[in-house]
Nucleic acid binder design. Structure first.
Lengths: 350, 350
DNA sequence: TTGTACGCGTTATCAA
DNA sequence: TTGATAACGCGTACAA
């Protein structure tokens, strides 16, 4: 036995020889069995099971031009949101008979083109993109390779492709309304640098729109947080609380976080400063990480339907691969407001 | 129906024609440029850049039998540990010029074979496996496909392959010693069902070994936690605390968690019961999730070098692909003990 | 040094 | 209904 050097899987030729038919017939058994005589089909089937044969997807891809592969490009696999979406997408892909090829940008902007070309080289049938904002050459690379794509969470300006994301505007309005109803009047929205990231921009815009249209009762402010500006954030929240406290009508202050990364940072600051969420300062964050219930009185959150987002993106893409010709869709999925102690003024008052 | 505009990438034939040479010459330009006349090489290069040609990795794979693809099979992509490892591995793969094909089992045992075969169909050159315990047919599938594999975190019994993981035994000893030094004497190790998962078994074994060899001073107990037995865990911890409290020498109770999932559950129970970590009950958990510092006085942890584990696994595999013939290696990476308030008796005493 | 021809494992187009 | 045979895009003995 020389299976020690290299184990070759049986080929279609081997099956054909074993069944005493041509390769074409074996191929038909898989792709057009209806054209086969029962007798012949049985013989082929026997040979297939005997040899434990399975067609090589690679060779199929080369021949057909389709690979049943989907390229998934993600800006930063560290981001729990991305992983959650990835999970839903990968699941739907598997169910649809597709395999996922993953490319992580590691937040390295400008590698998008490279990623697309690399995956296109493997004949992926389409792309799911959860990447950065300034898609320099992204669209060009997509066009050049002639592959459809679905954008998740972040849309590229000037790119006409299917787009799946949280309904950020709707979620923001729900968040703000909830806070206002609970007596919070001094609001601050903390976001990572907006740059070209559409979801961040849209949330900030929705926040500004809300606060300006409720200007008589509510004061709103946007804070751009980045790693370097850590202490500035603490000062800003402190000022916010002070502003609320000094107002004669007992306005309450609340912070809205743009995502889980920011939430973590704010929770950390609050722990240091010994602020009580809900009482000293209200809080509500986009994303609902598993640990949200464990911080203080529990952190209120906008839970994103990450699994559905990933799943929708994948099925959306697969539909296109199956010939769907509809114009680019914009699918916005609703978030779910999860109310916990951090946005409830009754908590911690006692 | 085939009127869909398929954008074809330029082929080697097109380059050859454009440069006025044969396909073989173009192929040599990429693989054996040293054999080429400078004159010809220049012409080929010109044609390549003009046409923006890049070889098709798929066709190369079919022809060579190697694909520069690595199959990564993970038991559960929901698990942050798996994701962290995945991240390190994917990075190292990219740096080595390999792409990752991801297959998530979604904890569906028995799909390992299926996953291996699916990925092998795409000619992946090797596997990184972070899967379940009872690898029924896993080894057989691997052998049948003749591909090397590296095991991460979980080793399969009777499988001779490279293995990369945390030094569980060493970490457990460090954890226990730390707790004992801080006055904790009633110890309980909480793990998910051990079943066939080697890392869980090894940690439990190390714990038992420690407590039996320190039996004069320390009492140790292992608790198997599963979703269904949630309330049992609360009772067990309560009993542990009671045992410690009733002892006249003021022994202190501490819980060790086997991973982040269990840690979350314990933290949740502690919040409900209003236990103060460090004072009422000590705590130390395997894995150091980002939120560990935020719970109570901060949760002590064994931080796993997940990035290094992933990276090591990948390079290990790539070495093999490059012809490395050494016998199966067992690479155990040290964890890092991160001490926070939950294992410090001074905290919360006031 | 370069070109020819064949193989890699399939599918698809013809004839038969 | 079935079977040769030519793609698919590339690597590589072998010949020139």
């Amino acid at each position: 036995m020389n299976d020690r050097l290299q184990v070759r899987r049986p080929t279609i030729a081997a099956v054909a020889a074993s069944a005493g038919v041509s390769k074409a017939t074996v191929s038909r058994f898989f792709n057009h069995e209806e054209l086969l005589t029962p007798d012949i089909a049985a013989r082929v089937k026997k040979a297939i099971t005997e040899l434990d044969y399975a067609p090589s997807p690679m060779a199929q891809a080369l021949s057909r031009g389709r690979s049943r592969l989907i390229g998934l490009i993600v800006a930063d696999i560290t981001n729990p949101y991305s992983v959650a979406v990835l999970r839903g997408a990968e699941k739907a892909c598997q169910e649809g008979g597709y395999l996922v090829m993953l490319f992580n940008l590691g937040n390295a902007i400008g590698r998008e083109r490279e990623a697309i070309d690399a995956l296109a080289g493997y004949q992926v049938d389409g792309f799911i993109l959860n990447t950065l904002g300034r898609g320099a050459g992204v669209m060009e690379a997509l066009e050049r390779n002639g592959k459809p794509a679905v954008l998740v969470d972040r849309r590229h300006s000037g790119m006409t492709a299917d787009f799946v994301a949280l309904d950020s505007a709707g979620a923001m309005v729900a968040a703000c309304n909830h806070l206002v109803e609970n007596g919070y009047r001094e609001l601050m929205y903390v976001t990572e640098p907006k740059k070209g990231v559409s979801s961040r921009r849209e949330r900030a815009t929705a926040f500004n729109k809300f606060s300006s249209s409720h200007a008589t009762r509510v004061a709103g402010q946007v804070f751009e947080y980045s790693e370097e500006s850590g202490s500035l954030l603490e000062d800003a929240i402190r000022a916010l609380i002070a502003r609320a406290g000094s107002a004669k009508d007992g306005r309450r202050a609340a912070v809205i976080s743009g995502n889980a990364v920011v939430t973590l940072r704010i929770a950390s600051i609050a722990a240091q400063c010994n602020w009580k969420f809900g009482a000293d300062v209200g809080f509500l964050g986009f994303d609902d990480p598993e640990w949200a219930p464990l911080i203080g009185p529990g952190l209120s959150a906008i839970a994103q339907p990450t699994d559905a987002i990933g799943r929708t993106a994948a099925t959306c893409l697969i539909d296109r691969l199956h010939g769907e010709q509809a114009p680019p869709r914009q699918i916005l999925l609703p978030g779910q407001l999860v109310v916990r102690g951090s946005s409830d003024t009754r908590v911690g008052r006692d």
